[in-house]
């Protein structure tokens, strides 16, 4: 991602000119957000009739959406449209808030077959190992950098120091943080900059080796340079992970995502390949939003 690509210019110039020829040849596009129109990607997550209500107020209503595997899906829409609620429904984090009721199905690819995570008896711990999450504000634990990264593996039964060290190094490499922290792995995480902390949180999620990573406005509290680094990272990670990102920033959605879903007032208005959403949306409301007429 170049510096120019980050400037909040118009949307259209950011749409890539190159279309990947085939899914099997994921030549790392220098520009993210490649159009996926010609690529039949198998979904990693299927959402069917998902409704989440807070007490009596409906948060999101009857959402159907497929999240393609090994690609970035962006959830956009004005504040309070339900995009974050939708995101948190994908690893059942909504249940940590009192009075939240969920109906419908979220089918996650689980040991080769689709499993409804809202089915009775689903192990939340196992679910969250498969579906990881990165939060709006960096929230490192009050521990060292190393201990933050190995938090997941440690709690999932890995105690061999060498294995942990290698897992940490790998995760930090993947999160493009290794070079910056390799000499101070035992320093407190709080000493890192905000952008580094957020990449640490990404590394922490990667160390659990999830299939899906949910990101709730991961750059909302970061400066433009840190934001650029994280957007770069998303492009790389999408080769191996299914990523779902909530963003209030349309340019960001255009830069990083392959598919975009537009939410409004708790409903899914439209979901399509990002290029198509940005240039040629089918719904008037989507068009109004992407052209900046409201939101």
């Amino acid at each position: 991602m170049t510096a120019e690509a980050m400037s909040p210019l118009k949307i259209v110039p950011m749409v890539p000119k190159v279309v990947s020829p085939a899914p099997e040849a994921p030549e790392m596009a220098t520009l993210a957000g490649q159009a996926e129109t010609d690529r039949e990607v198998e979904p990693a997550v299927r959402v069917r009739g998902l409704t989440v209500a807070y007490g009596s107020t409906p948060g999101i209503k009857s959402i159907d959406l497929d999240l393609p595997e090994r690609s970035v899906t962006a959830l956009i829409g004005p504040s309070g449209c339900g995009k974050s609620t939708f995101l948190r429904a994908l690893n059942r984090m909504n249940e940590l808030f009192q009075g939240v009721a969920t109906a419908g199905e979220v089918l996650v690819r689980w040991d080769g077959q689709f499993q409804n995570i809202y089915a009775p008896g689903v192990d939340l711990v196992e679910l969250r190992k498969r579906v990881g999450m990165v939060f709006q504000r960096p929230n490192p634990f009050p521990k060292s950098i190393f201990e933050n990264v190995v938090y997941g593996p440690r709690h999932h039964g890995v105690s061999n120091r060498a294995l942990l060290a290698e897992a940490a190094e790998e995760a930090l490499h993947q999160a493009a943080l290794w070079d910056e922290v390799k000499d101070k792995l035992n320093a407190p995480a709080a000493a890192l900059s905000g952008g580094q902390q957020q990449r640490l949180c990404i590394a922490r999620a990667l160390a659990v080796r999830p299939d899906v990573i949910l990101m709730d406005e991961p750059t909302a509290s970061l400066d433009p340079i840190s934001t650029g680094k994280i957007e770069d990272l998303l492009g790389k990670l999408s080769k191996d992970y299914t990523i779902v990102i909530v963003t209030h920033n349309l340019q960001q959605a255009a830069r990083v995502s392959h598919k975009t879903a537009f939410f409004l007032n708790g409903e899914l208005i439209e979901a399509a390949p990002t290029l198509q959403m940005m240039t040629n949306p089918r719904d008037r409301r989507t068009e109004n939003y992407v052209t900046g007429r409201f939101g």
């Binding site: 190992k129 999932h156 039964g157 890995v158 294995l163 190094e169 790998e170 080796r209």
Partner: peptide, 24 residues
Amino acid sequence: ALNTGRTAVPTQTGVGAAVRTRLR
């Protein structure tokens, strides 16, 4: 992947697999 200095990717061999097996 670690030694070449390139960004590491999860692999089905080596540490990746070992950790993954434990994790699951």
